[in-house]
């Protein structure tokens, strides 16, 4: 266990700021630039809007963080959000299912996809990228079949309330995201399970020799990712009051981007929920800020790409320096 302790990241106060100082400065710089360009940015209603817009991404990011911490990836997340969203809409509208049944069904479908990913990656030794590419295709296909290519309308107020309620101006979606972030932090920093995830990403062989059930703990995070995607599907379909087969397209890219910008190493073992949170905010501020400034969305892609590149280069340089020390 000595080895895993060495790669374990301190999670509190000063250490948090020191570790994330680069991206915190980046975020503040972005906020300053955007606020100077448009007075609409730093208003209460826009901040709430920004948090709300990025809430589902935050939930997906918590899942993506687990995969990347293990040195792997899950590119099926967007497709699973789409599949569960459409299944939710289908159950509630076409089958008149009760809300609780629909919610459980969506989460269960997410968990099922996650289990398929996890089993093929950890037990069948399929590379994560390939395994989740396969489930991504399967999910997209099933989504098209279930929806029949038609946008399904939802006219069940109890269901849409799951995404449209707010408490004192704060949307329920933001609360979901906050809760998921806190639980993920707790999982990674306060439980044996979280400890093992870092250990797996740091050095799988070492983890195995220290007696960790590597296969089991490599699989379980994917089940969690699936459940989080199911939650994402429920939230989007409830919030839009409809679900189409295109739901969730490209979500994996935003999630990977935020996690990587947040200082998580693509080779695993290094990364925090706090860093990811800042990564999410950076992506969110870029999108929201450029929208407010009226800059064409194609440029947003370019900016996001540049920032991801910078984040990865910093990660590589940092690792180099650590090696030399």
């Amino acid at each position: 266990m000595e080895k895993s302790k060495a790669i374990r990241v301190p999670g509190k106060g000063e250490a948090y700021f020191r570790r994330n100082i680069g991206i915190i400065i980046g975020l503040i710089a972005l906020i300053v630039i955007v606020s100077l360009s448009t007075p609409k940015f730093l208003t209460g209603s826009n901040i709430l809007n920004l948090l709300k817009s990025n809430a589902v991404n935050a939930i997906i990011c918590c899942g993506m963080l687990l995969a990347i911490l293990m040195g792997e990836i899950d590119i099926s997340v967007g497709s699973t959000v789409g599949l569960t969203g459409v299944i939710g809409a289908y159950l509630i509208t076409n089958m008149n299912a009760p809300v609780w049944v629909t919610v459980i069904a969506c989460l269960a479908v997410g968990a099922l996809i996650g289990t398929i990913n996890g089993v093929s990656i950890s037990y069948l030794k399929v590379p994560a990228f390939v395994a989740t590419l396969a489930t991504q295709c399967i999910g997209r296909g099933l989504t098209e079949i279930i929806s029949g290519g038609v946008t399904i309308r939802i006219r069940n107020d109890a269901y849409t309330a799951l995404g449209n309620t707010s408490f004192g101006g704060v949307s329920i979606i933001v609360l979901y995201a906050g809760l998921v972030l806190i639980l993920t932090w707790f999982l990674l920093n306060r439980t044996r399970f979280g400890y093992y995830i870092y250990a797996l990403g740091g050095n799988k062989t070492a983890a195995q020799y220290s007696g960790v059930d590597v296969k089991k703990y490599n699989m379980l995070p994917y089940v969690l990712i699936g459940v989080l995607c199911g939650l994402g599907g429920i939230i989007w379909s409830a919030r839009l009051g409809s679900a189409a087969a295109t739901l969730g397209n490209g979500f994996e890219m935003d999630a990977i981007a935020a996690v990587v910008i947040g200082g998580t190493s693509m080779s695993g073992g290094v990364g925090t929920v706090g860093g990811t949170f800042i990564g999410i905010l950076i992506i969110g501020v870029i999108t929201n800020g450029l929208n407010l400034m009226g800059i064409n969305s194609f440029w947003q892609s370019v900016f996001k790409g540049v920032i991801i590149m910078v984040a990865v280069v910093i990660d590589v340089l940092r690792k180099d320096r650590a090696k030399h020390q």
């Binding site: 609409k40 809007n49 189409a244 407010l292």
Partner: peptide, 21 residues
């Protein structure tokens, strides 16, 4: 002019931002 990509959720996000602006 905002880019909605012809999709409900993208349009939702960009219109939300435009309403702020």
């Amino acid at each position: 002019v905002v880019e909605g990509e012809g999709s409900t959720e993208t349009a939702f996000n960009v219109v939300s931002d435009a309403l702020q602006a």
